[in-house]
């Protein structure tokens, strides 16, 4: 995928975002834009504030200062009702999947649908559930409990639960963490499929380089709460900066001996 073909209209516009926890400044003035129908990867070591950044976008965490505009609506200072309206346009895939343990897969998928799209009939809800399950390749899992699913299946169902409400923006928090390479690749491909099918703009938080190579239109690297570099995959891979190349260089220490 190339950046040139994409629309440059910003759907998320973050300016000078700062947040700290008990004196520890996690984000120190991050500014970024997410363009329409774009896959933006936010890369960085653990603890650099990647997850905090996307949690600020849906205001699961409230930033100390700065502005976050999502589809033209300011999030950081929004009232509860305004925030709920904005949240309806955003899908959030949690690192752990966050499936509701007490509900079946079907009930998990119906939950956001019944609350966000209240005018749908039972038939339409059932149709939508089957459609998203088909899209993530798990039509047979409909009556299973989350505890009966494998890690990869849980991620797929979580993804189905997120896309079922047709969000304009998707936020992925480490979508491939804890999965084997084959399943990780399948999830990465699924992210691309969803982007193409639903025309979503996505922010993908990850430190899995294979996932970055598969999905990234543009990459932003965070270091110690600040934007360290922004560019395309090619620019990152050819960068000689030791911090950046340590992410992209495939290492095999044993063979070097």
């Amino acid at each position: 995928m190339s950046t040139e073909n994409k629309n440059t209209e910003a759907v998320i516009d973050i300016k000078d975002l700062k947040i700290s926890f008990g004196g520890n400044e996690v984000l120190k003035g991050v500014s970024l834009q997410l363009n329409k129908e774009e896959n933006l990867v936010v890369l960085g070591k653990s603890g650099t504030g990647k997850s905090v950044l996307i949690k600020c976008i849906v205001r699961l965490l409230k930033a100390d200062s700065g502005t976050i505009e999502v589809l033209g609506d300011e999030v950081n200072g929004a009232k509860r009702e305004e925030l709920e309206e904005t949240r309806k346009k955003i899908g959030f895939l949690f690192q752990s999947g966050a499936l509701y343990d007490s509900m079946t897969v079907k009930e998990n998928l119906e939950f956001p649908l019944r609350r966000i799209k209240k005018d749908l009939s039972e038939e339409e809800i059932s149709q939508k559930v089957n459609e998203v399950l088909e899209n993530v390749g798990l039509p047979d899992a409909i009556d299973k409990m989350p505890s009966e699913l494998s890690g990869g299946m849980r991620k797929r169902i979580s993804l189905a639960r997120t896309i079922i409400v047709d969000p304009a923006i998707m936020l992925y928090d480490e979508p491939t963490t804890g999965l084997d390479p084959v399943t990780s690749n399948e999830i990465s491909m699924l992210i691309n499929d969803i982007q193409e099918k639903y025309k979503t703009a996505s922010i993908i938080i990850t430190h899995d380089i294979e996932c970055v190579r598969t999905v990234a239109d543009r990459i932003i690297m965070l270091k110690e709460g600040e934007v360290y570099k922004e560019g395309s995959l090619a620019e990152f891979e050819s960068d000689s900066d030791p911090y950046i190349s340590s992410f992209f260089k495939s290492q095999s220490l044993k063979n070097q001996k």
Binding site: K55, V58, L60, E84, R87, K88, I90, F92, F94, Q95, S96, A98, L99, Y100, D101, F111, P112, R115, I116, V165
Partner: peptide
């Protein structure tokens, strides 16, 4: 507590619930 730890409560919040 387990819903909080496994981010289910946050998932509910972002589902406008």
């Amino acid at each position: 507590g387990s819903m909080r730890v496994t981010e289910q409560i946050e998932a509910m919040e972002v589902s406008s619930t």
